[in-house]
Simulated scan of single mutants.
Amino acid sequence: MNAPLNAAAENVFPEPVAEAKISARNVSVYYGAKQAIDSVSIDIPKNYVTAFIGPSGCGKSTFLRTINRMNDTIAGARVDGEILLDGEDIYRSGMDVVQLRARVGMVFQKPNPFPKTIYENIAYGPRIHGLTTSKSELDGIVESSLQRAGLWDEVKDRLTDSGTALSGGQQQRLCIARAIAVDPEVILMDEPCSALDPIATARIEELIDELRGKFAIVIVTHSMQQAARVSQRTAFFHLGKIVEYGTTSDIFTNPRQERTKDYITGRYG
C-alpha cells in the first residue's frame, strides 16, 4: 500500500529488486567531520538504467562514487555500511580496487579522454588488464568498443588522431567506449551530458538506451526530463538520504512522498 504523500520519508530498506546487481545497506559517507550520505539503502538491478535525481548537494554523486570506491581518492573520506556487487562486499579487506573499477566503469561529467590517440584511449584498459594476447585481438576490441559507442564510423579513418581533438560529444562517447572496452558489468555516469549541446546530448541518450540490457547503468542527472527518457528506475535524493525509489513512471506520475512531488513539480531544487 502506498504511503500518504505527507508521510515522513526515512531511509528504510527498499523493496528487494529482482536480480539486483548492486545492493547497498545503511551506507553513510563522511568527508572529515561532515556527513554527506546518511544511511542509504538501495538495490540496483541488472540490465536496467537507474537514475539518481535531486537538488545540487543532495549526495547523489557522492553515493555514485561509492559504487566503485572513487571516494578512496579523496583525503579524509570514509564510507560506512555495506555495498555488495553480486553479493560481494566491495569494501572488504583485500578487495582489488583496480579490478573493481574494471568491473564498474565510470564516465564523468566533463569528458576526460587521455592525452593519447583515439586508438590508445580504447586500447589502454584491455592492455593493462591483460585482456588480449595479440595485436589483432586488441584491434578487434578497439573497433567493437567504438562501434558499441556509436563512434566507429566517425573516427575509423583517424584512429591515430588525439582523442582530445574530437568534439565534446565525441569525446564523451570515446570515454564511454573506453569504459566498455574492459567488458565491465556496471557503468556509472555522473551527469554525462551536462557539458554537451542538445544534439550531442540526444546521441548520448540514444547510446545509453542501446547499452541498456548489456550493463547495469546508473546515471546521475539534474535533468528530470533526461531521467524520464533514459531510466527505468529512479531514486530521489535529498539532504543525503533517499527520499523515494521506484519505477521511473511511478516516481514521475505517482510519487508517494510530498518532497518528491514538490521536486518533480519544480517547487524547489
Results as ranks from 00 to 15, higher is better:
Val79Asp: 06
Gly81Ser: 12
Leu85Glu: 09
Arg78Glu: 15
Asn71Ile: 15
Phe114Ala: 10
Ser93Leu: 13
Ile90Met: 04
Ala75Phe: 03
Asp86Val: 07
Glu82Asp: 09
Arg65Ala: 05
Gly94Trp: 01
Ala102Asp: 01
Gln109Phe: 05
Pro113Gln: 14
Leu85Tyr: 02
Val107Leu: 10
Leu85Val: 02
Val104Pro: 01
Ile67Ser: 03
Gly105Glu: 08
Leu84Phe: 08
Val107Phe: 09
Met106Ile: 13
Leu84Cys: 06
Gly87Asp: 02
Arg92Met: 05
Gly81Glu: 07
Ile83Val: 15
Gly76Leu: 12
Val107Tyr: 06
Asp96Phe: 12
Ile83Gln: 07
Gly94Leu: 04
Leu64Gly: 05
Ile90Leu: 11
Asn68Lys: 06
Val104Trp: 01
Asn68Cys: 09
Asn68Thr: 07
Gly94His: 02
Lys116His: 11
Gly94Thr: 00
Pro115Lys: 11
Gly105Val: 06
Phe108Gly: 07
Arg92Ala: 15
Ala77Gly: 04
Gly81Cys: 09
Asp72Cys: 02
Gly105Leu: 10
Ala102Phe: 01
Phe108Asp: 06
Leu100Pro: 12
Asp96Gln: 12
Ile90Trp: 04
Ile67Glu: 05
Tyr91Ser: 02
Gly87Phe: 07
Asp80Ile: 01
Ala77Ile: 06
Met95Ser: 04
Leu64Glu: 04
Ala77Lys: 04
